[in-house]
Design a protein around this nucleic acid. Sequence first.
DNA 1: CCCCCTGATGTTAACGCAAACATCCACGCG
DNA 2: CGCGTGGATGTTTGCGTTAACATCAGGGGG
Lengths: 347, 347
Amino acid sequence: MPREVGARSPRSRPLRQSPSMADVAAMAGVSSQTVSRVANNRENVDASTRERVLAAMKMLGYRPNTAARALVTGRFGTLGVISFDISAYGNARTFAAISDAAREADLFVNFMGARAQTGAAVRQAFQQLMVQSVDGIILIESQILDTPELRLPSTVPVVFADGDTGHRYANVDIDQAEGTRSVVAHLLGLGHRTVWHVAGPRDSYAARRRAEAWHRSLKDAGSVVPPLLYGDWSATSGYRAGRELAGRPEVTAIFASNDQMALGVMRALQEAGRRVPQDVSVTGFDDVPEAAFFPAPLTTVRQDFDAVGRHCVTLLLEQIGGGTGSPRQASVAPVLVVRESTAPPAG
Amino acid sequence: MPREVGARSPRSRPLRQSPSMADVAAMAGVSSQTVSRVANNRENVDASTRERVLAAMKMLGYRPNTAARALVTGRFGTLGVISFDISAYGNARTFAAISDAAREADLFVNFMGARAQTGAAVRQAFQQLMVQSVDGIILIESQILDTPELRLPSTVPVVFADGDTGHRYANVDIDQAEGTRSVVAHLLGLGHRTVWHVAGPRDSYAARRRAEAWHRSLKDAGSVVPPLLYGDWSATSGYRAGRELAGRPEVTAIFASNDQMALGVMRALQEAGRRVPQDVSVTGFDDVPEAAFFPAPLTTVRQDFDAVGRHCVTLLLEQIGGGTGSPRQASVAPVLVVRESTAPPAG
DNA sequence: CCCCCTGATGTTAACGCAAACATCCACGCG
DNA sequence: CGCGTGGATGTTTGCGTTAACATCAGGGGG
């Protein structure tokens, strides 16, 4: 009397499962170990045998099973990427570059968004990614507080892209200070007495470094350092800051910490009847593709996000492969792009 | 006589490997199967036992091994996402939403960039992702030619986000036609005789549908259909088209297929001395966060990318889970946002 | 001519987990 | 009071792959 469960034929799944090495081996008349060798491009396989195996693979449409391979090798061939706001231009570009570089290195990319720009959120994302599924992790524009509790588990190679430095992890960095200096120098060189700054959010390391570099550059030049305004990267926040600045006649030059905020600043100035660049010079940071088409084509600092992404993967690969020595740093130089939003002060 | 290989102690790796279920089982004094049950939140475990196991897990820092689990279950708990230009705002936002929804469903996200916006490139990315590592695939703004050779392998659930429809895959779609109609109706309603269109690239399905809807809307309204201009989504291409249009005095209303191109168009008009919106009305599509801060705050169509992303995951989960019936479609309605870049024609 | 070395190939044994099946215990009902 | 029932738990097995070791054939030097 057949039980109803029996109908399903417990172990012999007749539905065309994807073929395994054993299937290929059978077809090629070799052992599955030889198939494995061919699949992994080992040298010690006879040319004719290899050919036969390859043919069988093709015939059967064989694909190696990543899980089985990962189980035995302990490697996933996957790299994890953590970022907070992936729809922000710079982060997206960096991510795209990482993804391209990873593909070239035959690595998959596992993305995990951080819920917030906090050490805790980053750590949570990190933990999730750590669940054995990745060989290395790249954090885009993330900061971590290097306190013992927030320290990341160290069993996996880590690279920070444009994030917090000064800790024990590898880092690919855009030289924020240099970019900032070039902006400030450009504006002071045009004859402005000083430069006002609309900073990015306090919890962004990049924003903080730009603000610090702005401060130091002005001090070094002997200019007075005006009060700092904060935004949150959005054009809206730039607009808000711009309204405030538009009310002060002494403001002749504004350095916004990114291009979106610069756009908002320009809009506020326009509404207040102050012309850019005749009355006020405005600069940004990033050089988004639209910057040249802003109300006044924007003088800004171009960041090479592609280079950042590529370097990240390189550094990660180094750690995964060798693991020799201390984690390396890499730096990418930004370049000042002068357009029409800056000019000598009136009068 | 010890061989030199012996120094490495073949099987007993003393280096602290991550603990397995067996370790947890030993510590908790249960079988590893019970640990498995606890790890998978099964009902049939005694409360006290469960507690003991959980404690042991915590103590040992146990993390389930994804590879082993995948090997035995045949599921990876991972979903693949394919997109061409992930740094484009809409794609990035959709991707972010997918990633969030996936996390909530305890799924990982594996991203694979398509090298180009072609069926072949998409298929290649698809193949790579198929290498057993994903349970389902979402394609963002991709089109495929539904010819036999380009047909995707069908062993994995697939959802298209805002991509080619009219094939046998599930689809989440922004109602491009409706959004376009609302723009055209708005402009005609203001009194414009007709509306010029700067379309997105020919290989974009979204662009094509907007162009078609524009064409039909004009025809339906009895307006003459002016020649179509093509861009590539970039502000630069919008600028180029804008220069051409600025030279034609009969142009009073322009519908650009996205906001970046609208910005370029506005810039070109401004350079030509034609004011927006007094002389020419301009609209975009997308409603990027900066749109409100363009030289003239942009009238545009807001797309709910978050909804698209979430629907994608839902539909994919349905396919993975049930697989019942034919793949479903979902549609997201866009909404017209009227700002200051549109006005009645002069005179 | 024999031995040892080299390169190709096969065999065995995990990797860590969950499905299927087996076992055990306590409880309730006839 | 015995037996069936159902829930908790244990045992066995195999997922597809690679590392390690075993085997085998051929070739060159003493």
